[in-house]
């Protein structure tokens, strides 16, 4: 009897509350813009606040009502972002060829690892800030990455690993360019760079060439050879340090091949020695466009209808001729 009344009372209470709530949810229903709900579903739902709004719900409302850009969300996948833009009809208005720049972190250090580049063996607290306090770190080069992984600890997306050479490796798949690692690095070695770009100057040393040479074999000495070889005017040397202007860089790799210190690298291509143009003489009509466009006098033939050929010694592999050739008869091939 006791148990029956207990079950009944709780059951009835539950039922009454359930009924009241379901009635209230109809009676007091507030119409929300369905676009906001759909947008909210497409957002990651982590409520991280990275966009600057209180949670994903607040951000969804701002997207729909204030026309805020979905790109403010650092975590959203490109597929979902596109879906949101489709939902709001934004893609029809904005220029279709302008694709958003997706950035990822880049560590500007090629750091050598062997003991001859160390002042001492650091045995202290394993984080970069602590190491910097002691004699500006254990490495000879005052700009070298500490390699103790403060950036990896700061990364909320597990996108940074410290490799065997005591350098951080960025997993570009995981990196969302949130910028936490930038703040964590005491040497300011990390920069956010367009993910698509593959050629990078892996050094941050503004010391004079002679000084850099003493402490590092792969540091930028500011010689300026890269500036001369760049057909796209995309490299500048300031304060003894080469800097790539990524808006102009096409990733031809001419500077990578030329750099005497191997400071400039081509991503994921460790043995890259540069490229060279090759003319397919059967297709070539001798239009002289490539001859005119080459900034390095590396193309033979200025008289019309004469088939062109390349002087391999002069060609830097910039690819301007291949791009301009109306017959597409110039191919860029990797140097062996």
């Amino acid at each position: 009897m006791q148990i029956l009344s207990a079950v009944l009372v709780l059951g009835i209470l539950g039922f009454v509350f359930g009924a009241v709530l379901s009635f209230a949810s109809k009676k007091f229903e507030v119409k929300v813009d369905p676009m906001i709900e759909q947008t909210l579903e497409l957002l990651p739902g982590a409520n991280c606040g990275g966009c600057g709004y209180p949670g994903c719900a607040g951000f969804a409302e701002a997207i729909v009502k204030k026309g805020e850009a979905a790109t403010l969300c650092p975590v959203i996948s490109s597929i979902n972002r596109k879906k949101i833009e489709d939902l709001l009809g934004l893609n029809k208005i904005s220029a279709p060829d302008k694709k958003p720049v997706v950035k990822a972190a880049l560590v500007k250090c090629n750091g050598l690892d062997s003991d001859e580049y160390k002042k001492f063996e650091y045995m202290g607290v394993p984080n970069c800030q602590a190491a910097v306090l002691l004699q500006n770190g254990p490495w000879l080069c005052p700009h070298r990455c500490m390699g103790l992984g403060s950036c990896a600890t700061a990364c909320p997306f597990d996108a940074i690993k410290i490799n065997q050479k005591h350098l951080p490796e960025i997993d570009e798949e995981k990196c969302v360019a949130c910028g936490k690692c930038l703040l964590a690095c005491p040497k300011q070695l990390i920069e956010m760079v367009d993910k698509e770009k593959t050629v990078h100057v892996k050094c941050n040393s503004t010391d004079r060439g002679a000084e850099t040479r003493k402490v590092c074999k792969v540091g930028c000495i500011g010689c300026g050879l890269c500036v001369k070889v760049c057909a796209y005017d995309a490299i500048k040397v300031e304060n003894n340090l080469a800097r790539i202007e990524y808006e102009k860089c096409v990733g031809c790799g001419a500077c990578v091949a030329k750099c005497p210190q191997h400071t400039i690298i081509m991503e994921n291509r460790p043995g890259f020695k540069g490229r060279v143009a090759v003319v397919d003489e059967e297709v070539c009509i001798g239009c002289t466009i490539c001859y005119k466009v080459c900034k390095f006098s590396a193309i033979n033939g200025g008289t019309p209808k004469e088939k062109h050929s390349i002087f391999p010694g002069k060609c830097v592999g910039c690819g301007l001729c291949a791009e301009k050739c109306p017959k597409k008869c110039i191919k860029m091939v990797d140097k062996a």
Partner: peptide, 28 residues
């Protein structure tokens, strides 16, 4: 009904339902 021992569980039920209800009413 001499069901004082159901105090805690029924109070939890009541509070949860009440807060939900209040939220709906205030929202509207």
């Amino acid at each position: 009904l001499q069901l004082e021992y159901l105090q805690t569980i029924s109070f939890i039920l009541i509070i949860a339902a009440l807060v939900q209800f209040v939220e709906m009413v205030v929202k509207k």
